[in-house]
Amino acid sequence: MTNEKKKNTITWIALVLLTILSWKFSESLSGKMGLMVVILASITKFFGVSLQFLELKKAHSFWKFGLLGFLVIFYFLVFLFFS
């Protein structure tokens, strides 16, 4: 297995685990703690898919910071509306 394929596999396993964990945490944790955990897990998953699968890591900083920066602002606003 090549290096890139290994990274894809590790990313996929991490994404699946984060999905299951965020589902479980959303049911067991309440309030701002639950909100923070689910949002942080979602941001991490978005970074994993975009940087590794979509190969954003190979793109110019403009695309990288544009997309990921927008996402952070988006989740900050979601956090404000939900808290």
Binding site: S22, S26, V38, S42, F46, V49, L54, F74, V78, F82
Partner: peptide
């Protein structure tokens, strides 16, 4: 085509927590 496919993933990753998990 792969980028379009991954975009569907990304959009779902934004929808899923807000619609289903956050309360």
């Amino acid at each position: 085509g792969g980028a379009f496919w991954h975009m569907c993933d990304l959009i779902w990753l934004m929808l899923f927590p807000v619609l289903y998990l956050l309360h």
